[in-house]
Design a protein around this nucleic acid. Structure first.
Lengths: 238, 238
DNA sequence: AAGTGGTCTAGACCACTGT
DNA sequence: CAGTGGTCTAGACCACTTC
């Protein structure tokens, strides 16, 4: 019967244009390719994709809802920038959300997930032992991301996972953040090891404490890397 | 000069149809008029407003982003319901966000705002003294809302304020929540008085503690009002 | 006055549903 | 296989900006 093919071949999903456009713009912004302050119009993007403006509008509205783009009346769309004060606020919100995620994760993480974490941490150790300092930062970025993935997924609260990543993305796209990350290089995996150990011991408060210190350090380094302009944001982090 | 009128009369803002439609649907959902599980199609709403489907689509997409509506492929739009487990999760997220807001507010609330709070609390006291128990719940709803408004605004973190209200709305639309509120009648203003006093003393931890207890009580009452079906959500609240 | 942005309309087209 | 939902197109229209 000819239904065989139809049923076994993976469904060729039709991806709406707005999705493609959304992902493209989002990727451009998060990669830092489209920097904060850059203006673009719906028509411009529509032309780029050889489509009409409706799907572009919808993609941009979604980005607006996520806080990555601002729609200025009669000006166009602008890649949204964050003031130092807003960055401090986002750090605080991240602390609140990620602490909660870690509390859940302490209770719910599986032995398999703990093994994965250990594997990632050991991998990093051998990498560090090589003393091959050529773009070390780049090389550590991937295991750090994988670790975080396991970590936050372990909380088993879909809504919370989504909120956590959304707020991390708001900050990660900044050039300054890459400086912060490279300055925190070693420390980042010390923290992750502490979290891992706390998970082993099922010690919620220890895990949270490690993570909060990590965020605190990250904020402090960002503050120091950002010069006097950012000083007024110091008191905005709680 | 004829620019006088043009410059002094408030600008007659053109409100996009999608805004009107969005606000209408949102209000219908939050008021409980459109209950969870109800299906509706874009075309249906377009007809209701005598417009085309495009603005309706955009309004519905916004509601989807906020989690009030789900778009089921080839079925239509459905008013999204929350499982007991999801409700527990939202309570936890609320605790994280609202605690942070209260921490900020403790530091930043102005004497004027404290006066407003006191006025609201005193108003409630005289209301309670009357012992006029006719739909007392209804009458206390408004001052409670006003108090919360002052409270959360005092944190001065726009993003946080928006997140707090968004998550409160996710729960408030449920019928069960009204039962919870009426069962908590007296206790609600006891809590608010505690928060107010903590603000006077600039005691952050006391304010947070009061609020967290309040949320905890609210969750417990909801659990008890919701029968056996909700029991599995007990361990989901952190 | 010309140009651009923002919104909406009307309708085409295809995929999927259900009888 | 008719019906409905989901998406996109092409273009109209008006408000605002800019020259």
């Amino acid at each position: 019967m000819e239904t065989f093919l139809k049923n076994t071949v993976p469904v060729m999903e039709f991806k709406p244009f707005r999705e493609t456009i959304y992902e493209y713009l989002r990727q451009q912004i998060l990669s830092g390719n489209l920097r904060a302050g850059i203006l673009f119009s719906d028509g411009e993007i529509a032309e780029l994709f050889k489509t009409s403006r409706t799907p572009v509008r919808e993609a941009v509205q979604k980005l607006e809802a996520e806080g990555l783009v601002e729609r200025l009346p009669m000006k166009g769309n602008i890649v949204k920038g964050l003031s130092p004060v807003e960055i401090a606020h986002i750090y605080s919100i991240r602390k609140a959300l990620e602490s909660l995620a870690i509390r859940y994760a302490t209770l719910r993480i599986t032995p398999e997930e703990l093994d994965t974490m250990k594997a990632i941490l050991d991998g990093v150790d051998t990498l560090l032992a090589l003393e091959d300092t050529d773009n070390l930062a780049e090389k550590l970025l991937q295991p750090a991301g994988e670790f975080n993935n396991v970590l936050f997924n372990a909380c088993r609260v879909p809504k919370l996972i989504q909120m956590v990543w959304q707020h991390r993305e708001l900050l990660d796209r900044y050039r300054t953040m890459r400086i912060v990350i490279s300055k925190q290089l070693g420390e980042r995996f010390v923290t992750r090891r502490r979290v891992y150990r706390a998970f082993l011991e099922k010690d919620m408060e220890k895990a949270v404490a490690a993570w909060e210190e990590h965020l605190e350090t990250s904020f402090r380094i960002w503050l120091e890397s950002s010069g006097l302009d950012a000083e007024k944001a110091r008191g905005e982090y709680l």
